[in-house]
């Protein structure tokens, strides 16, 4: 019998997961605002509209399970247990950031909770994941690895190589494809041959489940089953979580390439609205939800405030953690 989730019978757990979703949403709204205000540089790829996937997947992982992510990684990081305070400091490039300002938005990592890194190169996380799984095998551990990839990433070679590899060695890897249907500004199905990701995985002998990623309950129940199977030696599996990116590719993309009616329809199916509706129907009061939102908003606002006032890293820090053999020397100011 597959493990089935009792999430619908556990309103307290739903509230806890909803809180994490709110935290991700508030983090992403604040990051976008900070970008527009000129406090955050570079690129900010918001996870808005996909929160139920990261939260539903990571709720079924252990702290010591590994996770590899992509450019849209804030949600995955928070869901895996990275602290949003350190993440906000990182986005602002300040001391105390997850990478002390060396990485920024696309290179968030927290090895203490198994988060092996977001990634600026599409699908490069796939090969890193199978390698981490091979290390798990060699070290005789019972961890698993989860790799988040987008629908755009399935057309890169390393994704196909890694699928083949994971199956050949029957590695404990869960590939999660968040199919938000658009790769930057290109509609994915227009540039993707065949029947898509699930069929590609199945062609390698990898079981693939396609689910409604915006349904927290379905994400949770599928993940609970699949993670248990992988931990028990099923070999790699794939979950295709259908979703929709409610914002542009990055914070400065108005997403003018898509039909506004498509966005409007998607807003009715988005995970925050649906999870909140379920809570209201299942005995959680509107006042309780409002209080939760206020609490989370305050928490994130506090991190933004802290980040704005946090010290900048000293220039000499740019020269540390490059390499031990042949380490660069800081040439000093005013050279």
């Amino acid at each position: 019998m597959p493990v089935s989730s009792n999430l619908a019978n556990e309103p307290a757990r739903v509230v806890e997961m909803f809180r994490k979703m709110l935290l991700i949403r508030a983090f992403e709204e604040a990051a976008g605002q900070a970008f527009h205000d000129g406090h955050v540089r570079g690129s900010v790829h918001q996870y808005i509209g996909e929160e139920s996937i990261a939260v539903g997947i990571c709720a079924n992982l252990r702290d010591d399970d590994f996770l590899t992510s992509n450019h849209r990684g804030h949600g995955h990081s928070i869901a895996k247990g990275a602290h949003p305070r350190a993440m906000m400091l990182e986005l602002f490039g300040r001391v105390g950031g997850t990478s002390n300002g060396k990485g920024g938005s696309m290179h968030i990592a927290d090895f203490s909770v198994g988060m092996l890194g977001a990634n600026g190169v599409i699908a490069d996380g796939c090969t890193i994941s199978v390698g981490a799984a091979q290390a798990i095998r060699l070290l005789k551990q019972d961890r698993i690895v989860v790799n988040f990839i987008g629908d755009g990433g399935i057309n890169r070679g390393p994704f196909m190589e890694a699928l083949n590899w994971a199956k050949v060695y029957e590695l404990p890897v869960l590939f999660v494809c968040e199919n938000n249907q658009i790769a930057a500004s290109t509609t994915t199905r227009l540039v993707t041959a065949g029947e898509g990701i699930a069929k590609r995985a199945e062609s390698f002998g990898i079981p693939a489940a396609t689910i409604d990623g915006n349904d927290l309950f379905e994400v949770d129940s599928t993940t609970a089953r699949v993670v248990a199977e992988i931990r028990n030696g099923s070999g790699p599996q794939l979950i295709q979580a259908m979703t929709y990116r409610l914002r542009g590719h990055f914070a400065h993309d108005p997403a003018a390439y898509r039909d506004p009616r498509e966005l409007e329809a998607a807003l009715g199916r988005e995970p925050m609205v649906r999870t909140e509706a379920w809570l209201l129907e299942n005995g959680v009061g509107a006042d309780e939800i409002a209080a939760l939102k206020a609490e989370v908003d305050d928490e994130i606002a506090g991190y933004v405030d802290e980040a704005l006032n946090a010290p900048w890293p000293d220039g000499s820090l740019a020269f540390t953690d490059v390499q031990d053999v042949g380490a660069p020397e800081y040439p000093g100011e005013g050279r």
Binding site: F66, T68, T127, V130, A135, E161, W165
Partner: peptide, 26 residues
């Protein structure tokens, strides 16, 4: 054969897997 691993002809993954396996403690 788990310490001398024969792989498919997948250079990206040979290298990428080495990166992942190194990050994971080997």
């Amino acid at each position: 054969d788990d310490r001398i691993v024969d792989t498919p002809i997948s250079e990206s993954t040979i290298m990428g897997a080495a990166v992942g396996a190194a990050l994971a403690g080997t």
